[in-house]
Structures are given as structure tokens and as C-alpha cells.
Amino acid sequence: MNKEVKLLREDGLRLDGRRYDELRPIKIEAGVLNRADGSAYLEWGSNKVLAAIYGPRELHPRHMQNSMKAIVRCKYSMASFSVPDRKRPGPDRRSTEISKVIGEALESVIFTEQFPRTVVDVFIEVFQADAGTRVAGLTAASVALADAGVPMKALITACAAGKVEDTVVLDLGKLEDNAGQADLPMAIIPTTGEIVLMQMDGHLTPAEFRKARDMAVNACYQIYEMQKDALKRRYAAE
């Protein structure tokens, strides 16, 4: 950890002027792609993410088919221009991992047994990254999934919390993520409160962990309203 970087200002606010429990501004738009079955575009602070859903559709090769349920195939990828230093395009260790955890989170809400032998393809493309892209991607993907009309238990909402300068804060920005002490991305099913994704980077004491968890969960309910609003706006506009 770089102790030189000052992450909290004198007045107690964060570098970008947010309070410790304040989200970055979020903008969601559903149904932005014509050829996809469902899609969503999301801006979360300076994160810019596009999610597209194709399916349920026939799965090839056939040996991958599951005769009992649909499989969910998720691909998270970052554009080469999404970060200040060019990212080498293509799958790497990090995006493979993120694809896996996002795919599994989404699978937990989809009624996969209604579509045996098929696949639901989820594509998440990050155009601009500024910390918290996995929660942004998951939030967008869940809106896109609802837009595609895939039967599901509920929407999924995701948000991260973390620790900077020994203070637990919500929704880390790029600097806070890099120079902070911990990052805790989480995703929940807002209707039941079930946790479908949780990862942690860094160290938190049990008390800090509980605080961060509660903060992230509370923020998820705010984001949930934005997701619903984005979906309803799509049809109200027509």
C-alpha cells in the first residue's frame, strides 16, 4: 500500500468529494442493441459498460448441452482502451475469473430448468474502467437479462465497499481501489437478500467487514430502484 497517497480530505470527504457512504452517479439504459435479445448500457462514475444477452439458444457443441437445464455462458471483457495503459486484448486470468463469478451469480436467478439443452449467452464489454467494473457489469447484465425476457427469480444488484485510510467506505474509485486497504465487491438478490457474489481483496477486521457488508447491501437497494426504473422507462417511452 502506498502510504503517500492521501485518500481522505481534511473535511472528511473523499477525493472526488463523496461522503464515505455515497455512491458514484449511476445511469442505466435498457434495450440499446437491436440484434441482441436483451441489452443494457450502464455508466457508473467513469465506468462505461455494455451488456448483451443472446438466448436461450441452441448450444453447440452438443456435448456441452445439459439435458436438464440451460447453461449460462458469460464473457466479461475489457476493451484495450478501457484503461490508461493499453490492456492487451483477449481473455486473461482476471477476466476469466470475473466471467466465472458473474456467470454463476446470474445462473442462480435464472430458471434454467425451463430451457433444457440451451445456452444463455451473456456478454459484458467494459469500454471504460474505473474500479468496480465487475459489479457494474453484473448490474448491467441483470437488466439486460430482464430485457431479454429470460424467466428469472429476480434482478441481481451489485455494489462494492472497501477500506481506505482505516475508514470503511462505499463504492471505491480507481485511486481508492489502488491505494486503499481492502475491496469487497458483493451482489445480492434484493427481493430475498441472498448474497450471490462476494469477493474480497485486502484485509478487514470482522467489525469492519460487517460494516462494509451492510453498507454494500444498503447501496444495492438504491441501485435496484435504478434498475427497475431503467426497465420501466424503456416501455414508458414507446
Binding site: 436467478v109 427469480k153 438478490i189
Partner: peptide
Amino acid sequence: VLVTPGEL
């Protein structure tokens, strides 16, 4: 009423 997945 327009409802989204998971709405009661």
C-alpha cells in the same frame, strides 16, 4: 401495471 422480475 408494468412489473419487473422478482416484483411481488
